[in-house]
């Protein structure tokens, strides 16, 4: 890509006392891109996002955002960022609309303009009819949408989203994905963290998989799947506690297998063929499922652990 990166990190480290939360990562995000940090609890995703958001000084390494230094030019950088933190942190003493207006005021946007944008953004996240409601009685999904609307009040060119849809039901999640997709189409650069493979596949052009403060893989969702998994996956469920024993006679089916507490995963180019093979060997499962391979499988392959239970 020819354009200068919006975010550039080299050997970025964050330590809390003796504990290393981010352990020397290199990242570049370019304008218009949508970039993801994928990883399990404690991987260091939020710590990284907070450093990019200039609310947490890096311990070591280089970091530049918009070509500026977050420690020296934090104020300037933050004025051009939109931030959706992992916890909503809405102003509980104010109404939904007031939350947006005062947030705009923190950016020195004139009051009338704040009101105009607030109305527009509440419409964008479909919360116009709750404008005068206090924040507390809103559902989790509504609060999340208010937070996203609030993060857009300064018309940021770079939006940081820390687990934008965690804890939401599937429908609320799809509404949010749709809104984020529209922002991306308007040219907003998205940087997000997630536990969810489907979210990463939906929203990210490129992503890094983080584990214990390090980047363990990088690429587009499709290339990561191609590199670290097979085209299809066969999932077998046996009666509880017998997976280990039942997997033995079929150990050579498919290219690779993962035996999990609740299921056996068989990685194969052709899932149906693999299932046929399993039947041939009289290893009939209680239930079986053939599905496309996902980033979940990539993660399992890279770290030996499942991502969300």
């Amino acid at each position: 890509m020819a354009s200068a990166p919006l975010i550039s990190a080299r050997g970025l480290v964050k330590r809390f006392g003796g504990f290393t939360a981010v352990d020397g990562i290199d990242v570049e995000v370019h304008p218009g891109e949508s970039f993801g940090f994928l990883g399990p609890n404690g991987a260091g995703k939020s710590s990284t996002m907070r450093m990019i958001g200039c609310v947490s000084p890096p311990t070591e390494g280089e970091l530049s955002i918009f070509g500026l230094d977050p420690v020296r030019d934090g104020r300037e950088i933050r004025s051009r960022l939109g931030v959706v933190p992992q916890q909503d942190q809405l102003d509980v003493e104010l109404t939904v609309e007031e939350n947006l207006v005062i947030y705009g005021r923190y950016f020195d946007i004139p009051r009338a303009e704040c009101r105009r944008r607030a109305a527009e953004l509440l419409d964008f996240v479909q919360l116009t009819e709750r404008a005068r409601s206090k924040v507390d009685p809103l559902s989790g999904g509504m609060k999340r949408r208010v937070t996203i609307a609030r993060s857009l009040i300064n018309e940021p060119s770079l939006l940081l989203l820390d687990e934008p849809t965690t804890g939401l039901d599937p429908q609320a999640r799809h509404v949010l994905w749709d809104r984020l997709y529209r922002l991306k189409q308007r040219g907003v650069t998205l940087v997000l963290t997630t536990h969810y493979m489907d979210e990463a596949e939906q929203l990210c052009d490129r992503l890094v998989v983080m584990d214990q403060g390090r980047i363990v893989a990088e690429g587009s969702p499709r290339s990561l799947i191609a590199e670290y998994s097979t085209r299809e996956v066969l999932e077998l469920r046996y009666s509880p506690g017998t997976n280990e024993a039942r997997a033995v006679p079929i150990a050579d089916v498919g290219e690779r297998q993962e035996v999990l507490p609740d299921r056996v995963l068989i990685y194969a180019h052709d899932g149906e063929a693999a299932l046929h093979e399993v039947h041939e060997r009289d290893a009939m499962p209680e239930s079986s499922l053939v599905r496309r391979s996902s980033l979940e499988d990539v993660f399992l392959r890279l770290t030996g652990r499942t991502l969300v239970d």
């Binding site: 300037e76 102003d91 003493e93 947030y103 020195d108």
Partner: peptide
């Protein structure tokens, strides 16, 4: 508790 200042400090406020 309300984490008000966390959200304020994510803006140009110091």
């Amino acid at each position: 508790y309300s984490k008000l200042y966390d959200s304020v400090l994510a803006t140009p406020m110091t």
